[in-house]
């Protein structure tokens, strides 16, 4: 399992980002009639406009994956900053930030993404929705950890030798929070990829003829019966990418917390 996972994860990330270079055909031009069945020239057949499905799948991950990665980074960074401030300062900054996070957590963020897509480009809408929906979760976890660390022996020893707050946060607190933030980054990425896929599928993101996994779902629904790989391939690509990120996040979380097993009851 372990032996298979890492090469698989590396391959998925590599193909998602740089698969376009491996594409046998131009992903935006026709090579055959619409919905051609898989053959030697195009192993996954063609889509509604006769374009090579394999080439489009190889090239179509970059948009959603980069969007999701950027959105996840923004959300985690915002949550990390808020969590550090709220957890370290306590008092009114904590109440303000935690209250804000609680409020945002009640907002349905796919709805936010769709509404923002009225005026913003798709990736920006995805990022904004991911930050609104995800940063509050990161903030909470980081805040709780920082509050706990604030009373740990090594942080108190640092206070006891008069270190400045900034130095304590960077030297003592951040290394312990980094793992949590890493696990959280994975979860935010999954949520952002889901949103990006939805926005693309709804036609609110990338526009034809650009290759994009979400948009391909939309274009190839009609050909599900004529050339099934045209629909299955982008769906599988999205699913595998999301699963790899979810597994990475779970491992990071397990490594850090070792969440206690539920006892015999």
């Amino acid at each position: 399992m372990r032996a298979v996972f890492w090469p698989l994860a590396a391959a998925v990330v590599g193909i998602a980002l740089f698969g376009g270079a491996l594409a046998p055909h131009d992903p935006t031009s026709s090579i055959a009639g619409p919905w051609a069945a898989p053959g030697a020239a195009s192993p996954l057949g063609t889509d509604s406009a006769g374009r090579d499905v394999l080439s489009r799948v190889l090239a179509g991950g970059r948009g959603p994956v980069l969007t999701a990665a950027l959105a996840a980074l923004c959300a985690t960074a915002a949550g990390l900053w808020g969590g550090l401030v709220a957890g370290w300062r306590g008092g009114w900054p904590d109440r303000l930030l935690s209250g804000l996070a609680d409020l945002l957590m009640g907002v349905p963020f796919l709805l936010v993404a769709m509404v923002l897509a009225v005026a913003l480009p798709g990736p920006a809408a995805v990022a904004a929705a991911t930050v609104c929906g995800g940063a509050p979760l990161t903030l909470r976890v980081v805040r709780d950890t920082v509050r706990r660390l604030r009373h740990s022996g090594f942080v108190e020893a640092a206070r006891g030798r008069g270190e400045r707050t900034g130095a304590i946060l960077v030297r003592e607190v951040l290394p312990s929070v980094a793992g949590i933030a890493g696990a959280d980054l994975g979860l935010r990425f999954v949520a952002a990829l889901q949103t990006a896929a939805a926005i693309g599928m709804l036609g609110l993101g990338a526009q034809p003829p650009a290759p994009d996994w979400g948009l391909m779902l939309r274009e190839n629904l009609a050909g599900a019966a004529l050339n099934p790989p045209s629909l299955v391939a982008p769906a599988a690509a999205l699913t595998v990418t999301a699963l790899v990120a979810a597994v990475l996040a779970r491992r990071a979380a397990d490594e850090r917390s070792g969440r206690g097993a539920v006892g015999a009851w």
Binding site: S152, G153, F154, E156, A157, G160, R161, G162, R171, E172, P175, S176
Partner: peptide, 24 residues
């Protein structure tokens, strides 16, 4: 507290698990 005073009074906490930063 000023530096000399910080030097003068040092504290060791209860929990050995949290006593040292796992990162260093």
């Amino acid at each position: 507290r000023e530096r000399g005073q910080l030097r003068g009074v040092q504290f060791v906490a209860q929990d050995p698990a949290g006593a040292l930063n796992p990162a260093h």
